[in-house]
């Protein structure tokens, strides 16, 4: 990791070293440095998509892995996420103008009665980084909030998050309502949050439980691809 107070000049690094340095700066939660790195790569002619995936998402993936393995804790992940957010703020308008791959659309929110949003925000950001359009409903969402957004946004994916043992059962209320209205099969439902596990995800009828943001991205990609494949097979 970069030492505080060293005289590293990011603009003097070649592309590979700069990207590596940006991974380190993300890991260390150095927002200003990450933003500077993003601007340098853009000035060198990198596409916004390449900056996003090779510098930011790849760096954040390391952060996520080390969090999962108990090397990093919540504060470090938050600082890293905040740095990535700084980089994303620069890239977002540019990405909208380019033909970066569009993976699909996700509606995401924390369930009713729950105000915790750290994990959800991380998933939102990583999904966006992976090319998904994300509609973030924020915290404390009732059934109607989710269902209205899914219909309005025509989103393929629903993501629900809960941090509390007391609020996680509400995910089943939402899924049951989707079944009742005959829309459950139109959407991929991903659930996550600290007290959840795979068994719970299966029991409530979700498509998958995602233990962290990186897994959410991979799962979403796989399930969207499988769905497209099945639709094509049905047409064929």
């Amino acid at each position: 990791m970069a030492d505080d107070g060293d005289d590293l000049v990011l603009a003097e690094l070649d592309d590979d070293d700069l990207v590596q340095q940006m991974h380190d700066d993300l890991y260390d939660g150095l927002k200003a440095e990450v933003e500077e790195g993003v601007n340098i790569l853009l000035e060198r002619g990198w596409t916004p998509y390449d900056v996003l995936t090779r510098a930011l998402v790849a760096g954040m993936t390391v952060v996520g892995r080390d969090f999962r393995d108990g090397i990093l804790f919540v504060p470090e992940v938050l600082l890293a996420a905040n740095s990535m957010k700084g980089g994303m703020a620069i890239l977002r308008p540019l990405l909208a103008e380019t033909d970066a791959p569009k993976m699909g659309k996700m509606v995401i929110g924390t369930v009713k009665g729950d105000i915790h949003d750290i994990g959800k925000n991380l998933v939102s950001m990583m999904m966006e980084g992976a090319g998904f359009e994300v509609v973030d409903l924020g915290i404390n969402n009732a059934v109607e909030s989710y269902l209205d957004a899914l219909e309005r946004e025509e989103a393929e994916i629903l993501g629900m998050s809960a941090l509390l043992t007391t609020t996680m059962p509400y995910m089943k209320v939402v899924i049951d309502a989707m079944v009742e209205r005959g829309v459950r099969d139109r959407h991929i439902v991903l659930v996550g949050g600290a007290p959840l596990n795979e068994e719970f995800g299966r029991a409530i009828g979700a498509d998958a439980y995602c233990r962290d943001a990186a897994v959410a991205v991979e799962t979403a990609k796989a399930l969207v691809a499988a769905r497209k494949h099945n639709q094509m097979a049905a047409v064929g």
Binding site: G29, F73, V74, P75, E76, L78, L79, N82, I118
Partner: peptide, 13 residues
């Protein structure tokens, strides 16, 4: 454990 001693800006997050 929440890192507020080293990064007070995390408080509102």
């Amino acid at each position: 454990p929440m890192g507020l001693d080293r990064a007070p800006e995390l408080r509102d997050m």
